[in-house]
Simulated assay, not measured.
Amino acid sequence: MAAAARRALKPGLEWEFDQHVLPREASRSAVTRYLVDLAETGGWELARLAIGNDGVRRIVVKRKIIRQQRQLYFLPV
């Protein structure tokens, strides 16, 4: 697992990307379970999936970065 990269595709909208490499021995159902687990626990969605000539699956997942505005509170004097 590589470190997640951040990229802004549109102004105000940022995505976080993460790359995963799964061996050719991983079955299709195991890969599906892995992706479902990423989606349910971390909010990731599939961006890209490539199966190489050697059978290795290279997966890129993404999720939105939600930034909250800092709230300013003023106390009455």
Rank of each mutant, 00 (worst) to 15 (best):
E25T: 15
E14I: 15
F74M: 06
Q19W: 07
T41F: 05
G42C: 03
V56D: 01
E45T: 09
D18L: 13
A47F: 08
T32P: 00
K64H: 05
T32D: 12
S27W: 04
F17E: 14
T32H: 12
V36G: 03
L22V: 13
V61T: 06
W15N: 09
R70L: 09
L13T: 15
T32W: 01
A5P: 04
D18C: 13
E45L: 05
R33S: 14
M1Y: 13
A39V: 00
G55P: 01
A47Y: 08
R67Q: 04
K64I: 10
L13K: 15
L49M: 09
D54K: 04
I66E: 08
A50L: 08
V36I: 04
R67G: 00
L22A: 07
R24M: 11
A50Q: 03
W44Q: 03
Q71K: 09
G43Q: 03
T32A: 14
A50G: 00
L22K: 07
M1T: 13
L38D: 01
A30I: 03
R24L: 12
I66M: 07
V60K: 02
R63F: 04
V21H: 12
R7M: 14
R70D: 05
I51A: 03
D37L: 08
G55T: 01
A47N: 13
K62E: 13
V61E: 01
G43T: 07
